[in-house]
Computed example of a mutant assay.
Amino acid sequence: MSDPSVTLDAGPAAAQAPVGLYAFPARAWHRAEYAGLQASALGPSLTVVCEPGGELAWADSSVATLGRRYAEQLVQQEGARQRPLVLLGWSVGALVAIEVARRLAGRCTVAWVGSIDGSLFPALRQELQQLPPLPAAERAELEAVMRRWLQASPLRAAWSAALQQMGAAEHELFLRQVVAAYGHALPQDGPQPGSQEHALWSRLNCLRLGLGHVLPAGLPAPLRCWRSAEMASQPDGLHDAYAGHPGCSEPEVVAGSGHLGVLDSPLLHARLVAALSETAPPAGRQPA
């Protein structure tokens, strides 16, 4: 049975394409991240998998939860087509794509996962786990500041939901880099998009999703990686986690692109078209 809380924004030719092409946003509700791909030659065959409603509705979600629900939806969607699937993810969306691929094992054929500016979070997670804990007195003071702020925050419910989903490493990071940095000046200007508090919550919730997810030990499908020119010199936590595994390719740099604009790059579009053409079944073996 289909999950009514999962939205499939499908191009007009998506159901008939020889390869099932699915993309997962970094922020589950934000399908507009893929507007550039939808307007490209890939658009007719592309399906963006996302959540209805606004971002605040998903304050207590996780990569594992999203991956489970999306995988079930793709099994329902693909039915008896028996065509290969390609799963794309940008930033945190790449973590979701890997998790979906893991959950589709033995149920659908995932030809490869495409990571675009793959998440830094696996590497950052390892770094955080190696940091010494905050001194007890400093921690107690920061926790007190946080409690006073939450009591007055118009976004208290969303903050509380996100904080409850944080593990020890993410909570420690929140105290160090948010509460300590802002102190008594933590924003309280409300939940409306564009407010300082909403912007901070949005960044931290995305950080929580990425840091809270543990990658599977084995690579569930071949991994192809593309990096914007802006991020090419930064660690690629997803690729680095699987470097040396069979099926993990070296990242390709998308010249002239930045992290926020790489999905709009015609060069990336051309490379994805070429990769998909290599994946399509031979003529005469088209899926039903």
Score class of each variant (00 low, 15 high):
Ser5Ala: 02
Pro12Asp: 15
Ala15Gln: 15
Ala17Ser: 07
Val19Phe: 02
Tyr22His: 02
Tyr22Ile: 06
Phe24Cys: 06
Ala26Phe: 08
Arg27Gln: 12
Leu42Cys: 03
Ser45Val: 15
Gly54Pro: 04
Glu55Trp: 03
Leu56Cys: 01
Ala57His: 07
Asp60Gln: 08
Ala64Phe: 02
Thr65Ser: 15
Gly67Tyr: 02
Ala71Ile: 01
Glu72Cys: 07
Glu78Asn: 13
Glu78Tyr: 03
Gly79Phe: 01
Val86Cys: 08
Leu88Tyr: 00
Trp90Lys: 06
Ala94His: 03
Leu95Thr: 04
Leu95Lys: 02
Val96Glu: 05
Ala97His: 00
Ile98Trp: 02
Cys108Ser: 15
Val110Asp: 00
Ala111Lys: 13
Gly118Lys: 05
Ser119Tyr: 11
Leu120Lys: 12
Ala123Leu: 15
Ala123Met: 14
Arg125Val: 10
Arg125Ile: 09
Gln126His: 13
Gln126Phe: 02
Leu128Arg: 14
Leu131Glu: 15
Pro133His: 13
Pro133Met: 03
Ala137Asn: 06
Arg139Asn: 12
Ala140Phe: 01
Glu141Gly: 13
Ala144Val: 06
Met146Glu: 15
Arg148Thr: 10
Arg148His: 14
Gln151Leu: 10
Pro154Met: 04
Pro154Arg: 04
Ala158Met: 03
Ala169Trp: 03
Ala169Asn: 09
Ala169Thr: 11
Val178Gln: 12
Tyr182Thr: 03
Gly183Cys: 11
His184Lys: 10
Pro191Trp: 00
Pro191Ser: 12
Pro191Gln: 11
Gln192His: 11
Ser202Phe: 10
Asn205Lys: 14
Leu207Gln: 13
Arg208Asp: 13
Leu209Arg: 05
Gly210His: 04
Val214Ser: 15
Pro216Gln: 02
Gly218Tyr: 04
Pro222Gln: 00
Pro222Ser: 01
Trp226Phe: 07
Trp226Asn: 05
Arg227Glu: 02
Glu230Trp: 09
Asp236Met: 07
Ala241Glu: 14
Tyr242Asp: 11
His245Phe: 13
Pro246Gln: 10
Gly247Arg: 13
Gly247Asp: 09
Cys248Met: 06
Val254Gln: 06
Asp264Trp: 04
Ser265Glu: 07
Pro266Leu: 11
Leu268Val: 00
Leu268Arg: 10
Leu272Ile: 06
Val273Lys: 13
Ala275Pro: 03
Ser277Leu: 12
Glu278His: 06
Glu278Met: 06
Thr279Val: 13
Ala280Pro: 08
Ala283Arg: 09
Arg285Glu: 15
Gln286Arg: 14
Gln286Leu: 15
Gln286His: 06
Pro287Val: 00
